[in-house]
Design a protein around this nucleic acid. Structure first.
Lengths: 189, 189
DNA sequence: CGAGGCCTTGACCGCGGTCAATGCCCGTGG
DNA sequence: CCACGGGCATTGACCGCGGTCAAGGCCTCG
């Protein structure tokens, strides 16, 4: 149940089994069904999720009701509505499981307690933030610099699993285009 | 010389004067001239800067040679080519001072040493990353969801100093439009 | 079998980019 | 002191990418 999480910690911090024992019980296993919501916009996000199996989607809707997807958390990834989790303000984001999903959950209070008291968790959080930041930078420069077709090619190159595994509707909201143009772009190879 | 930095630390971590004494000498004062480069794309970023006076600009150029500005660091802000600073890979970003600028510099090696050994600096870095992340999220959702005119209105509302203080050329690269369209947008009020 | 989603495709259009021309400001040198 | 040149801002004419809307086909699921 916690073995993927242990591997994750071990790879990033070199933690050993007995130190991990102390942490593991903070992370509770839960399951969610396809299309189930773990968080809705407007609510404050109190949980951090680690994906054992399945897939979470983090997205928001803008004023015109259009969906904008920010991140897919597959197996072996952490996911949460990070801005709300950090600032404890109502979330603009939704957290939705796109498939039947097995998760480990930790409550924000416990997590920040561990961040402040446990060097391994401190290191993990730092790593999460650094990664979240650098990937969002890539996205910004991609959105500003590249055409929709170039972004699709980039996705094909670096995250082909997204294209094969998820629906076009969801992919288009990730690429920042409408489903119509995504369909046309795919026709151009 | 270090008083702004002390205020910054004090506000975020409640550090006291004597604890700060130990840290301050890691931060060396330097100055830079208008349009001077502190880092050029292709080089690895080894420094973190704190702005005492003036303004830094962080930007990149895409394949067609077009500039995309990510951040302006005004007085009382930290600035660095964060992705390169974190990963020690060649930077895509340039760091340029837009005005005569007074800075405090700390070398990456020193900084991460302090992050790992000093709780105040650990907290400051966590805070930096959290802010860097949340602001880049706002940018992503703004770029994907809003029109150029809406983005300009947003800037007018939340960062009017940018509009008054910096050149249109630089502002347009921050908004993600050409100088031509920025000029037209301003004409529409 | 029917209803509703999702994907595709066509026709149309508007935002924002490109290119060229003009004017303004300012620094430099005759 | 003025003349010249270069950089920046503005504006007009044109165009193409990607959005919108409507229609049609194909799934799945009740």
């Amino acid at each position: 149940m916690h073995s993927l999480l242990f591997n994750y910690f071990e790879a990033k911090t070199g933690i050993n089994q007995e130190s991990f024992e102390f942490l593991r019980d903070y992370f509770k296993p839960i399951e969610s069904r396809r299309n189930e919501y773990l968080l809705r916009s407007g609510r404050i996000c109190h949980n951090l999720y680690f994906v054992n199996e399945g897939c979470l989607r983090l997205y928001t809707t803008n004023m015109e009701g259009k969906e904008v997807t920010r991140y897919f958390a597959f197996k072996n990834k952490f996911g949460t509505a990070l801005s709300s989790f950090i600032n404890q303000q109502p979330s603009f984001e939704f957290i939705q499981s796109l498939e039947p999903t097995e998760l480990l959950v930790i409550h924000r209070t416990d997590f920040y307690y561990l961040v402040d008291t446990n060097p391994h968790v401190n290191r993990i959080y730092r790593d999460m933030l650094e990664m979240a930041y650098t990937t969002s930078q890539e996205r910004i420069y991609g959105l500003q610099g590249d055409s929709a077709l170039e972004r699709l090619r980039w996705l094909l190159e670096y995250q082909p699993n997204i294209l094969t595994r998820l629906s076009s509707k969801v992919i288009s909201s990730y690429l920042g285009v409408t489903p119509y143009t995504l369909s046309r772009l795919k026709a151009e190879l």
